[in-house]
Design a protein around this nucleic acid. Structure first.
Lengths: 248, 248
DNA sequence: CGCCCAATTTGATTTCGATCAAGGTCAATC
DNA sequence: GATTGACCTTGATCGAAATCAAATTGGGCG
C-alpha cells in the first residue's frame, strides 16, 4: 500500500523538489505521508501578486507550474527583479515570517504550499529536507552572483543576449531541438519584465532585441517567439567565457 | 574538564560561526572536539589571492579576522565584486569541488579552515551545522538581492551612499559612537575595490565621494577615514526606504 | 468586422557615467 | 631629503542608455 500511495502522490506534484527529490527519491513513505498531510495547492493568474513585500507569510512553497518573479521596488517606483522562479523552485524562508520581496505570477502559476510551522517541524525531524534546501539555496546564490556580474558590468546588448541564452538553455534542456545549434522558444516575459530583470528601460530592451534581429543573431515571429539559428553566435554576444559547456 | 576545554577552544576562534554559534552555544563538546580535530588556520597578506576561480577546493572556511572579497572577472578584464566576507562569514560549498569565484584578501585575513571531506561527514552527523549553514546562506542570498537592486537601479551617488551606510552600520554595531547620529569609521576598500563593488569606475567613485564631502554629508580625514556627522542625512542619499530601523 | 487598449517599436534629445588624460598626495625606500 | 610608485583627484570629452514623445502592432471583445 505504501508503494501505491507513493506513486499516486508522485503524479500530482511532479515538480515539487522537496518531496520529489529529497524525499520521494529515497522512497521514504512516512516522510511523504507527513508532507502530504501539510501541503495544499494554489493557482494564480497572469499578473497576479502572489505575495506582497512585507506581508506576513505563514507558508513556504514550491512552484509546480508556471513562472513567477521576485522583485524589489524603491519608493519612487524603480523596480529590480531579484529572482525568477521556475517549476521546482522554492519560495519562502523557514524562520522568517515577513516576505522581503514581491512575488508576482508572470504566467499562470500553480504552487505547492506547506504551512510554515509544520514544515519547520518536519525539517527538524527529516535532515534530507534541510540538506536539499541548503543545496537549492546555494544554487540560487550562485545564480544571484552571476546576475550581479550582468547588472554591474555588462552592456545592454550583452545583457539581452545573456537573458536570451538563459531562456534558450532552459527550453533546450526540456525539448530536443531540430537542426544542430538551432534553438526555438517563447519569451515568457514582457519587455518591461525583461527590463526589470536586466536593469534597463523597456525601450532599450526593445532596441537591443531589434539590433540582434537585424544582425541575424535571432529571428522573431511575432513579439515573443524566438528562433536562434546558431546558439554559438548568441553565446558570443553574452560576454561570457566562450567555451562554456552549456550546450555542448 | 569538558567545560575547561570548551572555554579554551572558544578563545582561539571567536568569530567562527560554525563552532561558535551552532555548536559551542549549545556546549556540545563532542561536536566541538570533532570540529577541532579537522580544523586549521591560515593567514593571508593584503592583496593576496586566497582562492583562484576554477581552483580545486578541498576545504571550506570561515573568516576569523580581516576582510576578503569574492569577485568575478570577464575575459576582457571587467570585474564585479559579488561578495564581501567579514569576520564570521563562511566560504566554500559542501558538495562542490571547484571554486566559482576569486577570493582575495583586502586586509590581512585569518581563516579557520576545515577539510571539506571531513566537514561533509561532520554535517551528516550533526544537523545543527547544516541548519546554521542554511540560515547563513539565506542571509547571504538576501544580501545579494539587496545588492542587485543597487547594481541595477541606483544612481552613482546612491550607490556610494549605500556602501558608506553599510560600512557605517557595520562599525556602529561594533563600537559605541560619540555624538548622537555621528558615526566614524575607516574604509577598508580602495577606490578601485569600491568601484568593483558598485559597478562603477574608480573615477566616478572618487568624484561622488568628493560630491558627498562638498555637500557636507560626510567629512574625510585622509583618504580612508570617514566621519558621518548625521547618519540620517547619509541614509537619505541611499534611495532606500527612509524609515529603516538600522540605527534606530 | 472594426474598435480598443496594452504592448511594442522607433525617433529625437538629453544626461549620467565612462573614458582619456593630467596632476596631486603620501608613505616607503634609497 | 630626493625618488619612486601606488593611490587618489580632477578636468575635458565622449558615448551608451535614459528620457520624452509619437507611431505601430496585434490580440480580445462588443
Amino acid at each position: 500500500m505504501a508503494v501505491h500511495e507513493h506513486s499516486t502522490a508522485h503524479m500530482d506534484c511532479d515538480n515539487c523538489p522537496i518531496r520529489h527529490r529529497a524525499v520521494c527519491a529515497r522512497c521514504e513513505s512516512d516522510e511523504l505521508d507527513a508532507l502530504n498531510a501539510i501541503k495544499y495547492y494554489r493557482t494564480y493568474d497572469v499578473g497576479q501578486t502572489i505575495i506582497w513585500s512585507g506581508d506576513h507569510m505563514d507558508f513556504v512553497a514550491s512552484v509546480v507550474e508556471g513562472i513567477a518573479t521576485l522583485s524589489q521596488t524603491m519608493e519612487d517606483g524603480r523596480t529590480q527583479m531579484v529572482g525568477l522562479l521556475l517549476p521546482s523552485d522554492f519560495v519562502g524562508r523557514p524562520g522568517r515570517d515577513h516576505a522581503p520581496y514581491d512575488v508576482t505570477a508572470t504566467t499562470q502559476v500553480t504552487m505547492c504550499c506547506f504551512r510554515k510551522k509544520a514544515f519547520e517541524e518536519m525539517m527538524l525531524r527529516t535532515p534530507h529536507i534541510g540538506q536539499r534546501l541548503l543545496e537549492m539555496t546555494l544554487d540560487e546564490l550562485d545564480a544571484a552572483r552571476e546576475w550581479m556580474l550582468l547588472l554591474g558590468r555588462k552592456t545592454a546588448r550583452e545583457k539581452i543576449a545573456s537573458l536570451l541564452a538563459i531562456m534558450a538553455r532552459r527550453d533546450a534542456s526540456l525539448k530536443p531541438q531540430g537542426a544542430a545549434g538551432q534553438v526555438v522558444f517563447d519569451l515568457p516575459l514582457t519587455r518591461e519584465a525583461m527590463a526589470d530583470y536586466l536593469g534597463l528601460t523597456l525601450e532599450t530592451v526593445s532596441r537591443q532585441i531589434s539590433a540582434l534581429r537585424k544582425s541575424g543573431v535571432i529571428q522573431l515571429e511575432g513579439k515573443r517567439h524566438v528562433v536562434v539559428p546558431d546558439i554559438d553566435r548568441l553565446l558570443n554576444e553574452t560576454g561570457d567565457d566562450a567555451d562554456g559547456g552549456f550546450f555542448g
